[in-house]
């Protein structure tokens, strides 16, 4: 029997597989395809203090082995989440983690404080890396001082596991991760989407309504893997790896690169059952390779 439990500060995952924010709705959308109790956690859609309509259509452009999106954090606000969605999903037999976003520090703090009061949410993922909102989001995540400020402020009001999601759109992601760690993050998750663009040569117009958008999917995996490796060498807190993971083998690669757990994102769109398959596939890999505890794989890269 392979041990799959991952213990993070104040957050125990039954296995290292979580689903990435914005790709798994509130879990309900996937309940017909995946036994949610077989997952380490689900990270629900980005939640902001106030209702956000998001960006205009078109919000998506398909790319080779990936996609660009500029959804722009469409959500009904944290109060709606607490009143309407939380009661429906709080008793899932998995960790329900809320991704919290904002356009200024006060908004982040106010939303995080409200989530802090929810008994059945053991962690938040602080989204300082959304590339699709004009104000804030990524602005905080691309400088050490920005990430330090927002992490510190949220840390003061949030008492459970604080995961900070990092942007890959920086020169040195390890420095940013160190700044988050110094400001009190319990873990860092990476990568958010890579800023990209698509143009229609026939019309000479951008494909996306916001001109640029975030790239995700299998195509970003090598970049994500490299960043996870760099960050895991730099920080002492656990690293959660994501970016293009589409199979158990991909997940294993992230663990070997130094991730303590992983998230599955865009692959959920291609195979809505993939998260459960990856969780099972990790166990199969361990059995095949005589690994008794998944934690043995973390940082197990042989150089």
């Amino acid at each position: 029997m392979v041990k799959t439990e991952i213990k993070l500060k104040g957050l125990t995952l039954k296995n290292p597989v979580m689903t990435a924010s914005g790709t798994f709705g509130y879990g309900e959308e996937y309940a017909d395809f995946v036994d949610l109790s077989e997952l380490g956690g689900i990270i629900v859609k980005g939640t902001t203090l106030h209702h956000r309509e998001g960006n205009p259509y078109p919000r998506m452009a398909e790319t080779p082995m990936g996609m660009l999106n500029c959804v722009g954090l469409q959500n009904k606000g944290v109060d709606y989440f607490i009143e309407t969605i939380y009661p429906r999903i709080r008793h899932y037999d998995t960790n329900v983690i809320v991704n919290v976003s904002g356009s200024n520090i006060d908004d982040y703090v106010a939303a995080a404080a409200k989530i802090d009061a929810l008994d059945d949410v053991p962690a938040i993922e602080l989204n300082v890396s959304c590339p699709n909102v004009k104000q804030g989001g990524m602005a905080f995540g691309v400088t050490c001082s920005g990430i330090e400020q927002v992490t510190k402020a949220v840390r003061e009001v949030y008492h459970k596991h604080l995961m900070v999601k990092l942007s890959p759109n920086v020169t040195n992601i390890a420095e940013i991760a160190l700044a988050a760690e110094a400001a009190g993050a319990d873990s860092v998750s990476l990568i958010n989407t890579l800023l990209g663009m698509a143009i229609d040569a026939e019309t000479r117009k951008p494909v996306l309504s916001m001109v640029t958008g975030g790239l995700s999917g299998a195509c970003v995996k090598p970049v994500a893997l490299r960043m996870v490796w760099q960050v895991s060498k730099a920080v002492k807190i656990p690293v959660i790896g994501l970016g293009g993971i589409s199979s158990a083998t991909d997940a294993i690669e992230f663990l070997l690169a130094g991730a303590s757990a992983i998230q599955i994102g865009t692959a959920n769109f291609i195979d809505p059952a993939i998260s459960g398959k990856v969780a099972k596939g990790i166990v199969e890999y361990c059995e095949k390779h005589g690994v008794e505890d998944v934690n043995e794989l973390v940082g197990g890269l042989i150089l």
Binding site: G22, T23, F24, G25, E29, Y30, K45, E53, G54, P56, Y57, R59, M60, M67, N69, V71, Q74, T266, N268, F269, P272
Partner: peptide
């Protein structure tokens, strides 16, 4: 569309009830 099941919010139509 990207996901087809209401998760990604890419295929929105701006309606009287919002996106």
């Amino acid at each position: 569309m990207a996901c087809g099941i209401g998760a990604c919010l890419c295929c929105v139509e701006n309606t009287k009830e919002g996106n």
